[in-house]
Design a protein around this nucleic acid. Structure first.
Lengths: 203, 203, 203, 203
DNA sequence: GATGAATGAGGCTTCATTCAT
DNA sequence: CATGAATGAAGCCTCATTCAT
């Protein structure tokens, strides 16, 4: 790959990042192409050499975020890597840590994904919902494996249980967004207790 | 109250409703004051006799929705009305039914509240997060009462458990939004099973 | 005249006065019909029962002001009442006093006439210029009489001298508007000295 | 300076000129940004690349006019260049000629400055009054110098005499505006006669 | 006769996008 | 290739005026 081509890719990357920052900080509609270009010190005409549209760039921003999150989840874990409830629980903790990493490190990530993106337009709203569904089906894979492997009850409603679990995760992300001083570790612990013992059971 | 004053209040109500419909269907930014006025067959100047702003009307739309939801929850239930786990569980079902009613009856309600509103601007985003917090603290009241009354374990992390529960509710609302054909009853059942038995229990 | 008819005339008068106050204080374009009505505590629909137009009312306001000024000048003086330079000079002082009265008593009068009115539209600008011309021709009558009676030199350029005199009056009104603390008496004295001795002559 | 930068300055200049023409011909309030742009054959969006506001452009138009006038006056004359009444009188004539040049060449200049500008808003009204004061203090400098040099009487009320003189100038400008066919030379002669002999002198 | 609710023309301003340099 | 000047569609909002009550 030529030097020029590499530079081009690099700038493309920088534009996506700058756009993400602008959108997350000022909101999609309040951000102008000029703002994004200004943040990089490039002319705003240049922007259009890399992206066709304002809509185009936000698409890439979101795609990027989603891929990064899915990647994080897929990286360290696999549904079929565990075979006992004990191991599963440990895996749950690891996944929770990974998610906390992604969402907690930079609050602009959940802000963009959960607050800004859904309202951009119908299509983007649908994409975010699809992302939730994807996450749910990912979770469902784990649950289904547990049922199949026998360490989870076989009358468990796999999909809906996955929805419940993902809801708790979503809730924790939003709670952290509401209150940045929140003790996330305790929240994660509480979620896991609900997951494994229900609210009424002994810890 | 004079006839004119009544008519005025009525039109005000109609504008709020029309605005809600427009915002939920086309999105806040894609909706013009003219769209709202056209839906009612009134001049767009008339709109400004009732609301000062586009921002003003969406504020009222959201306030209205939130009040309706809070009202629904407050209407039928009370944290201190139950004294056994069995009763609590029944109460949970009732609250779940009420919520399903509010959110399920008209999908534009959750769409507006969860997808459109947060991205309108920073302030509105904050309002929605506050609404989540309010819902959480409402749930926490129930959980706390259970702990105090002894039918829930006294080492339960009340606030965070409430966050987990509310997350599951939020997740179910979003799931219903994603897939309108979803069997919500089964989802609610699954959530309650997680709540009371955890994912691993009651095999 | 019936009681109702009298009341009607009275309200008409009040509307003109209120309009004058609004226009002079906020400016013609910044004043709404609603402002005028509000100042009187009447409905703004009522306004249109007395005047056909926003333009109509300002026409009346200006006409009123001009008539008042012309009236003041005409009241106490007459060109042919004096026959010596000494008497003429005294008459000049009286006229100056009368003008100072009209313009000085309420600064909104010159503000309306000199600052607001000319910019309302072409026609009103023309009216104000005509008013200046009228004032000039009035002054010219005095000067002409002085020439005819022999107490002013017969090679005096009557019209242009009248223009010069009126210019000084106009200047003094504007000076007073600029600086309300200005000692107008001294200014009037200075003007009369220029009038009678020129700037180089002995006082 | 690059070619583009020069073109930019040029267009800026053209916009100011076009705005001046529009404001002077149709009036400030009756002129839309679209009118100004149309006169130049540019898009109205372009206007906003050069000026932030309708208010902004009129500010520049007025500043321009005032600076041009002040410049003209300052260019050819100096208070301390003369030392006899005779010379002073000649200087007066020169200044009068210069003013006649500025105001007489294009009647839109006095129309804009005296009729349109004062009514734009309070602030602009104040600016015009300040301009009169500035002109007065300029005149006062000349008069004061005459007193100091001894060719004008030392009991002359310098400031107020300057006001009187400026009033005559203002009056002559307005007279020329009223009646374009007016013989300005005769008017100027009449003003100078008043200035140096008073109305009664030199019979 | 008085009222004020309704109206919509009209004007300002923004900003995504294009394109000549 | 990068730039930023130019553009005009689009949308918000005001307010003079009308007219039914």
């Amino acid at each position: 790959m030529s030097r020029a081509a590499r530079r081009k890719l690099e700038l493309r990357r920088e534009i996506i990042d700058a756009a993400f920052e602008c959108f997350a900080e000022k909101g999609y509609h309040a951000t102008g192409i000029a703002d994004i270009a200004a943040r990089l010190g490039i002319g705003h005409g240049t922007f259009y050499r890399y992206f066709t549209n304002k809509r185009d760039i936000v698409e890439h921003v979101i795609t990027d975020l989603i891929e990064r999150i899915i990647g994080t989840l897929a990286a360290e874990n696999a549904p079929d890597a565990v075979h006992t409830l004990e191991d599963y629980r440990a895996q749950t903790v690891r996944i929770g840590d990974a998610l906390a990493q992604v969402f907690g490190e930079d609050p602009r990530v959940p802000r963009m994904l959960l607050l800004e993106a859904p309202g951009i337009d119908k299509e983007m709203g649908a994409r975010i919902l699809e992302f939730f569904e994807l996450a749910t089906s990912l979770t469902a894979t784990y649950v289904a494996h547990g049922v199949q492997d026998g360490y989870l009850p076989d009358d468990l409603d796999v999909d809906n249980t996955a929805r419940a679990i993902n809801g708790m995760i979503l809730g924790s992300v939003l709670a952290a967004l509401s209150d940045p001083t929140l003790d996330e570790r305790r929240l994660r612990t509480a979620i896991q207790r609900v997951m494994y013992d229900g609210i009424a059971g002994r810890s």
